[in-house]
Amino acid sequence: MDKVHEYYDYVLPLIVDAGKALSKVEDIEVEFKDSQVWDLVTIYDRKIEEILIDKIKEKYPTHKFIGEEETDKSKEKPILTDAPTWIIDPIDGTANFVRNMPISCISVGLTIDKEQLLGIVYNPFMDELFTAIKGEGAYLNGKRIRTSGCKDIRKSVLNYEITIARRNDYYYNMYMFRFKHLIKIIQGVRSMGCGVLGLCYVACARTDAYQCDGLYPWDAAAGTLIVREAGGYVIDSSGKDFDLMDPNFLATATKELSDEYLKIERIADEEQLTFSKLNKPFSP
């Protein structure tokens, strides 16, 4: 783990410096990826990713990279190897960033032998730095954090990225059927528009659960490690083991809470399947 600490010490100030520069941006020009109005990108997304990759390559030329903007440019599905691999989201929550909502961040995760070992998430707009090294706990601005420990779904607050439902009929039906069942039971719901911070908020007990399907490795590489190191539980929303390269995740304060959410979601998914066989649309 000495090498992981070395990597951490090198990368952390790069991320903080990039975040501080990002927080001073005023004029923001927005583009849409593949004409999708929900998928935004700015020149700063590209610049931050490029700077981080170039600086890390300069120090560690044999390391690999999976970045949001690089993947979008190449149009190739990223492949995770055993090599040290940095998984980077230069601005997670771009839609918030362009509206001056302080819920966006830079996210960097590191895997070695396909194992998540390091996660750094920095929200410069609120000066919050979430960090974790596997086996050493999770921290917010240097102070140890832990999940809420909630085990009762009725007392839980869920972060649910319902905007993803607009992508296509598959996600629309999945999200809506699940939401219909969950909203009757849980204490409250939030939708923050920033996947990485959604995970970090479970880790520091601001919410108790976070459900999101349809994201990408860079949305989950740092945050899921931070949740686990804070004592939380992460699983695929289908109930299978979490897969970083296909991150449909349910992150919860405890395994007991996860089990309760999965039980309700299976009921919703079965109902959705029945309706789809009958060619019926979502029914509230």
Rank of each mutant, 00 (worst) to 15 (best):
I120V: 14
V121A: 11
V121M: 08
Y122W: 01
N123S: 12
P124S: 04
D127T: 11
E128Q: 15
L129R: 00
L129N: 04
T131R: 08
A132R: 13
A132S: 13
A132Y: 02
G135R: 14
G135H: 13
G135Y: 13
E136Y: 14
E136R: 13
G137A: 11
A138E: 02
Y139F: 15
Y139T: 04
L140I: 12
N141V: 03
G142V: 08
G142K: 07
K143E: 15
R144A: 07
R146F: 01
R146W: 00
R146Q: 06
S148N: 12
G149W: 06
G149Y: 02
C150L: 04
C150V: 13
C150I: 12
K151F: 05
D152F: 08
D152K: 12
I153G: 06
R154D: 03
V157D: 00
L158E: 04
L158S: 02
L158I: 14
N159E: 14
E161A: 14
I162H: 08
I162V: 13
I162R: 12
T163E: 14
T163C: 04
A165W: 02
R166Y: 10
R166E: 07
R166N: 07
R167I: 13
R167T: 13
N168V: 00
N168W: 08
Y170Q: 06
Y170G: 00
Y171G: 04
Y172D: 04
Y172E: 04
Y172M: 05
N173Q: 13
N173Y: 03
N173A: 05
N173L: 09
M174F: 04
M174L: 15
Y175G: 04
Y175L: 10
F177M: 11
F177W: 15
